[in-house]
């Protein structure tokens, strides 16, 4: 194993007059299994405290630390340094406004998530003293969907999202499908209404970047395909 690797990190501070640029840092490999996040922490704690990035759970479930490493979106906390080609080029998620360094403004991403009504919609009241029943088979339909951590790796890797500012993007659509297929939900009609247009499901051109980018190994393209099929079946 190499003793150190080079992190070539995108830097931008709006308060400095300087244009965005890359700064190279040497990261010491202190132990096997170091993650990209460990490298970023080492840079900030020992070399340059001005570097900004988001992180929290450091185990791939909170979704705060989506970044672009060597051209691919991923979570810094579950990406092993030893699996990457040196130098390691670290950039913010593509296509989003940069706040500072690796921190991007995710407002548009979140607003599109809210647009698809990502919550259970029911017409009747639930049973008064027990849970709604759902068979294990019905529940299984949510697997591969409910695990989304809203890290934005998929949506910001999507060329259709880059090109169309109105496109809902793979994450919002996957989350819409998560509720549409929930046997307890009665909101399919209103959600399909929202996503059955040129900026919704039909903007997906099955480029499949989202599938490659998802750190939870989910398949937004398949969910979007299911949405399209459902819309077509309902029309004809």
């Amino acid at each position: 194993m190499a003793k150190s690797v080079t992190f070539s990190v995108f830097r931008y501070d709006p308060e400095q007059g300087r244009k965005p640029h890359y700064t190279d840092y040497q990261v010491d490999i202190e132990r096997p299994g170091m993650m990209v996040l460990d490298g970023l922490n080492q840079i900030r704690w020992r070399q340059d405290g001005t570097l900004a990035y988001r992180r929290s759970c450091r185990e791939g479930v909170c979704g705060s630390d989506g970044i672009n490493v060597n051209g691919v979106n991923m979570l810094s906390c579950i990406t092993h340094i030893e699996d990457l080609k040196d130098p390691i080029v670290v950039q913010p998620l593509p296509s989003m406004p940069v706040i500072k360094d690796l921190v991007v403004d995710l407002t548009d991403f979140y607003e599109k998530f809210y647009l698809v009504k990502p919550y259970l919609i029911t017409k009747g009241p639930p049973p008064s003293d027990r849970e709604r029943l759902q068979t294990p088979e019905q529940r299984k339909l949510l697997d591969g969907l409910y695990e989304c951590i809203l890290c934005a790796c998929c949506t910001t890797s999507c060329p259709s999202y880059w090109a169309d500012p109105e496109y809902l993007g793979p994450s919002a659509l996957l989350n819409a499908w998560r509720f549409i297929v929930d046997s307890r939900d009665d909101g399919a009609d209103e959600r399909l209404e929202i996503i059955n247009n040129r900026n919704g499901a039909w903007r997906c051109h099955t480029i499949l970047n989202c599938v490659e980018a998802c750190p939870k190994l989910l398949n937004p393209t398949e969910a979007i395909g299911q949405i399209k099929k459902t819309i077509v079946q309902r029309k004809f």
């Binding site: 919550y119 639930p126 003293d129 849970e131 029943l133 068979t135 019905q138 529940r139 509720f179 929930d182």
Partner: peptide, 19 residues
Amino acid sequence: VIELEHMGLPFSRIEGGTI
């Protein structure tokens, strides 16, 4: 817990459909 289920929490299920 029942209230969380009613809110939509996707609990795993057993045969019979309960949590």
